[in-house]
Nucleic acid binder design. Structure first.
Lengths: 198, 198
DNA sequence: AACAAGGTGAACATTTTGTTCAGAAAGCCA
DNA sequence: TGGCTTTCTGAACAAAATGTTCACCTTGTT
């Protein structure tokens, strides 16, 4: 693990910074490699010395992006905090974070490509779930708006399926479906204030 | 609402089918418009008569894709089914569906571009949550594997934030955070079999 | 100071994109 | 069926972006 040449570090940082900036300004799709090297004040040849494509550079920016995305509190919650009814403090700082990075994150999330499909899947799923909830329960009985609840469940569901598609190991689909159903049930009971009795 | 020319319909179907096929074969990124029209046996000029880009065509395939992705049971669940402890039947058929569409879905989800970042965010988030859970509880006490629980929560969380980034209206960030915390708490209690007492 | 590693810009081949146009083919409607 | 309209087509073309090469310069390293 020999430490990298200072020039290498400098160049990569410049490129990454340039890409992040540009994403925030005009969105990922509209950016060419030429744009990036212009902004970074680096030769195009140099770019290819480090990365093979825009995507590859982008993936290497994940630190910059993901760290922006920290939503939760910055330190682990204690058991008591996890189980308390009110959200722990530190949420407003998370909010500030998101607010600052809003433009960037929006651009990252809002491609007109596959990301759009993913969102549609989620929305579709959510609509489905919401309709189901409405047909079985009445909104007034819930302490949680049903659209939010449905979205929560849809996100969780899609996440699990995606994950299963990637790994399948060591969980079976049936197992995951079972778990999801159980957690869904728990969320519904929470929303409608149901206890052990049906 | 005059019905479309038969040729138009035919062409669009051919193009969509071609794209879906190609995605399954070599993944979205590696496909050029030329590839698509070759496969569809359609002139390139014709392509641009209908769509402006690969992305646009892709988005128009969402029906084909989203319908593949139906995971849940095909008909709304009754209140009893929603609240029962065991997952309803129809899950194995959902499984078959996913299994058939696996290659396609995998290609759709597994870009090396922004999708990769999204996955990393999710994984990062999940790791975070899982670590927190482990520090506060012991895995043996849970009826749900902690990695699955963490992933479930991470998916839900990211979904909510994404949604909030898109709309913000009519929910405030604090409101969403509060709701998320509450549902998270409920999921944890479900996993660890906790009742009203802490 | 000397050597190695990284950066540079110009030039170039290649690929992909997106447009235009005139004519052929197919659908539509009476 | 015939006549009118829409759609499809292929060739040709301009423009843009990609990715590579090479000889030379600059900067770090020791």
């Amino acid at each position: 693990m020999t430490k990298p040449d200072r020039r290498v570090q400098r160049t990569r940082e410049l490129l990454q910074k340039a890409l992040i900036e540009l994403i925030g300004e005009r969105g990922y799709d509209a950016i060419t490699i030429q744009d990036i090297v212009d902004r970074a004040n680096v030769g195009r040849t140099t770019f290819y010395l480090h990365y093979n494509s825009k995507d590859e550079l982008f993936v290497n920016c994940h630190e910059a992006i993901i760290s922006q995305f920290r939503i939760g509190p910055l330190h682990p919650l204690s058991r008591e905090e996890l189980l308390s009814l009110t959200a722990p403090h530190g949420m407003t700082s998370a909010y500030k974070h998101l607010e600052d990075a809003r433009t960037l994150l929006y651009s990252v999330f809002h491609g007109k490509d596959r990301l759009l499909i993913l969102r549609r899947m989620r929305d579709w799923s959510a609509r489905d779930i919401e309709a189901n909830l409405r047909s079985a329960f009445s909104e007034e009985d819930s302490v949680i708006p049903l659209d939010v609840l449905a979205l929560y469940l849809a996100g969780a569901q899609i996440g699990l399926v995606q994950w299963w598609l990637e790994k399948r190991q060591p969980h079976t689909f049936e197992g995951l479906a079972q778990i999801f159903h159980r957690l869904q049930r728990s969320a519904i009971r929470e929303a409608f204030g149901l206890t052990e009795s049906t």
